[in-house]
Simulated assay, not measured.
Amino acid sequence: MNQRTPTLLYIDDDDALARLVDRGLTRRGYRVVHAASGEEGLEHIRRAGAQDSIESGIDVVALDQYMPGLDGLETLEQIMAIPGAPPVVFVTASQDSSIAVTALKAGAADYLVKDVKGDFIPLLHVAAEGALRQAELQNAREEAEAEIHASRDRYAALAAEREMLLREVNHRVGNSLQIIASLLHLQASSAGQEEVKAALTNAMGRVAAVAQVHRRLYTSQDLKSVVLNQYLDSLLEDLRRSAEGNRMSRLTLKAEPIEIDPDRAVAVGIIVNELVMNAVKYAYPDGAGPIHVELTLQGENLLLAIADDGVGDNVKADPRSTGMGQRIVAAMATKLDASVERDPAHSGTRIFLRFPRIPVAPGKSNSAAAS
C-alpha cells in the first residue's frame, strides 16, 4: 500500500451514510471524498487524474448501485473507460447475486452488500485494502511486462545494429581481399617465369577463397553460415579467370546446397584451390583436361573430392616443388577434422576428404573468417 494517506471516493446519494463511511474509514487511515451522484464521481476521478500532485489522486472508489441519473453499473462502465482509473468496490443494498456477477464482469475489483446503519464499513475497509493491493500487483505486473517488452526491443535493436556492422565488416574485408586477389592476378598474368606465375596464381586462389566467404556473408540474409554449392561455384569461376584459366576450361562442380559456418567454409575453399591447382600443374603435361570437384552429404559426414583423368601415379616429381600446397591441405584438413585419402581405383588422380558436417546452430556467433 502507498506510504501516503490513501484516498477513497465514496459515490452515493445518501448523505447520512456517506458521513458514517467518512468517520469509519478516517479512523482507519483513509481520506474520504464524497460524491452524491455518478456524474459528480466521474468528474472527481477525471479531475484527480489531471492533477500533477499525487496527493490529489483517487486511490480507490466505493460505488453505490442505486442513484438518480447514472446508476452504479452505468457509472462503473464509464469509470472503467478512463485511462488509469482507480479500482472500484461495488456497493449495493440488494441481495441479488446477479448484480454482483454483472459488476465484477464490468470491472469491479470487489462487491459487498451495505446496510443503512453502517455495519458494512469494516467490510468496506477490508475490500478497499484488497482492491488497493490488487491494483498494486496489477501495476507491478504491467510495469514488469513493459520492461520485458522494452528489453526485447533494446535487444532487437542491438542485434540489428550488430548484424549491420558485421555485414559492413564483411563487405569491406571482402572488397579489400578481392583487390588483393586482382593485383595478384595482374602480377601473375605479366610474370615471365612459369614457376612465378604458378606461385602467384596459387596465392590469388588462396586469397579469393577467403574473399568469397566474406562476399557470401554480406550478400546473404544469414551472417552465420555459407551455402557451399554457391560458394564453390563462385570460387571456381575466380579460378577460371586466373592466369591459368585457359587450362581450367573443363573444370566442373557438382555440389549439394549444404550450409556450414564461415571458418570451415574457408578451409574447404582453400583445400579446393590447392588441389585444383595441383591438378592443373601435374595432371595434364601436354595441355588441359577435365577436373571435377564434387561435394556430397553422406549421413553425418561431408565428402569432398577433387579428381582428374590425367597421368595419375605416373606423374614425375617436380624438383621445384616446395610442398607448400600439401602442407596447406593438411593444415586445413586438421581444421575440418578431415581425413585425406587417395582413391586407388581411379584411373587418374582422385583425392577425397571426409569430415563431419556440424550443422550451424541457431544464434551462433559469427566470427570473421580468418585468412
Rank of each mutant, 00 (worst) to 15 (best):
F355Y: 15
A345L: 06
R357E: 13
P356M: 11
V329S: 09
V293L: 04
S339K: 06
A305L: 14
D308L: 06
I351G: 04
L336G: 04
A330Q: 10
A331P: 02
H346L: 00
K335E: 09
A307E: 12
P356R: 09
T322K: 14
D308H: 07
D343E: 09
A333V: 06
D343R: 03
V360D: 07
F355K: 10
P290Y: 03
M332H: 06
D343I: 02
A333R: 08
D286H: 00
N314V: 11
I306E: 08
V329I: 12
G310P: 12
V293W: 02
G325E: 10
D308M: 07
A317N: 14
V311R: 08
I306F: 11
D286W: 00
H346M: 02
D337T: 05
I291V: 08
L353K: 05
Y284G: 01
R342S: 10
V360P: 05
D313L: 15
T334E: 13
G287E: 02
L336K: 04
V340Y: 03
Q326M: 09
P290K: 01
Y284H: 00
I328G: 06
I328W: 04
G287S: 01
K316T: 14
S347M: 05
V329A: 08
L304P: 07
K316Y: 12
P359W: 07
I328A: 07
P356S: 11
V293M: 03
D313F: 13
M324D: 14
P356C: 12
R350I: 02
N301E: 13
V315E: 14
S347E: 10
T322R: 14
G287P: 01
L353G: 04
T296M: 07
A345Q: 08
D313W: 15
V329E: 06
R342Y: 02
A333L: 07
H292D: 03
T349M: 09
A345I: 00
E341Q: 10
A330T: 09
A338E: 05
D309Y: 12
D286G: 00
T334I: 02
Q326K: 11
V329Q: 05
L302R: 03
V315N: 13
V293R: 02
F352K: 04
L297S: 11
D308V: 06
R320A: 14
Y284C: 00
Y284N: 00
A345R: 08
R350N: 07
G287I: 03
D313Y: 13
N301C: 07
G348S: 03
E341Y: 01
L353M: 08
A307S: 15
V329Y: 06
S339T: 11
L295Y: 03
R350K: 12
T296H: 10
M324Q: 15
H346N: 01
A305E: 15
A331K: 13
V311P: 05
K335I: 04
A331D: 14
G325R: 12
D308S: 07
R342D: 08
A288H: 03
D318I: 15
A333N: 05
A317V: 15
E341M: 04
H346Y: 05
S339P: 00
R357D: 09
R342G: 01
G312N: 13
V311L: 14
I358N: 13
T334W: 01
G348A: 03
N314F: 15
G325Q: 12
A288T: 05
A333D: 07
T334N: 11
I351K: 01
P290F: 02
V315Q: 14
V293H: 03
Q326W: 06
V329C: 07
A305K: 15
P356Y: 11
E294L: 04
V293N: 02
R327Q: 13
V340E: 04
